[in-house]
Simulated scan of single mutants.
Amino acid sequence: MDNRITIEVAQDGNIEQCRELCNELMAFQKANAQLRPELFDAMNFDTRMKRSYERALASQVLVAKEDGVPVGYAFSTIDDISQSRHAYPDWAPRAEQGAYLGFYPDWDDLPDKAGCLNNLYIRDGYRHLGLGSKLFGMAMDWLDGFRDADVVFIFVSNGNEAALNFYLSRGFAFSHDVFGGFIQATYRRRT
């Protein structure tokens, strides 16, 4: 990793510094989506990252910077999923009648709390420096610190095969299609 790049933990709720990067991520996901790209029009920093940050039981935002300018970030949460297992965000496509295709699988042993790596994004021009692996590792270390959340989910937008393969190569397994394949869910259980 380039020695001009630093990684900081956002303190005191200072997530606004990720606004531009988060909006770039949503545009990147829309550009690569093969299924319903128009749904990304309703997704941005305020509707996705800020809302998730405010609702989480615990959260961590790692910000990679070059000369003080954000160039990447990782956003992770610990969430109480006992009440939101069957929730549909406003932007989500509706399931076929009788079929539930939401965020979480219908496992009998699905815990009440789960970790989630919500966003991992590196600005173009900074990819292939090992920054994604570094942010991923730091996020996983933080998530692994929560003993009562023994499963971590990562939700990958359709069309982002590089991200899906990145997570699968790091010990995550495919769980299920979310919202009819709009998102692919991966998971890892604590061993």
Rank of each mutant, 00 (worst) to 15 (best):
S175C: 12
S157R: 06
D177K: 07
S157P: 05
V178T: 11
H176G: 04
F179Q: 05
A185D: 07
R170H: 10
L168V: 14
E161C: 02
R170E: 08
F182S: 07
D150F: 07
A185K: 06
G171N: 10
R147F: 04
Q184D: 09
D177T: 00
E161F: 00
R170P: 03
I154Q: 01
G181K: 05
S157M: 03
V152K: 07
G180C: 04
A163S: 15
H176A: 02
A163Y: 02
T186W: 01
A163M: 03
N165T: 15
F172D: 01
D177F: 08
N160Q: 13
G171S: 12
Y167V: 11
A173E: 15
N165K: 15
I183S: 03
L168C: 13
S157Y: 10
G181R: 07
G180L: 05
R170F: 06
N158D: 15
L164W: 09
A185T: 10
V151P: 05
F172Q: 04
V152S: 06
A173Q: 14
N160M: 13
D148K: 05
S175E: 06
I183Y: 05
F174H: 12
Q184G: 03
G159H: 09
H176C: 05
G181C: 09
T186G: 04
L164K: 15
F166L: 13
F182N: 10
D148G: 02
N160T: 13
S157H: 09
D148N: 13
D150Q: 11
F172M: 08
L164C: 08
N165H: 15
F179C: 08
L164F: 10
L168W: 12
Y167F: 13
N160C: 14
F155I: 06
S169N: 15
L168D: 09
F174K: 13
A185V: 11
S175I: 02
G171C: 05
N165P: 08
G180Y: 04
F179P: 02
A149G: 02
L164E: 14
V151L: 07
A173P: 00
D150A: 04
G159D: 11
I154C: 02
S169G: 10
G159W: 07
H176R: 14
F182E: 08
A173K: 15
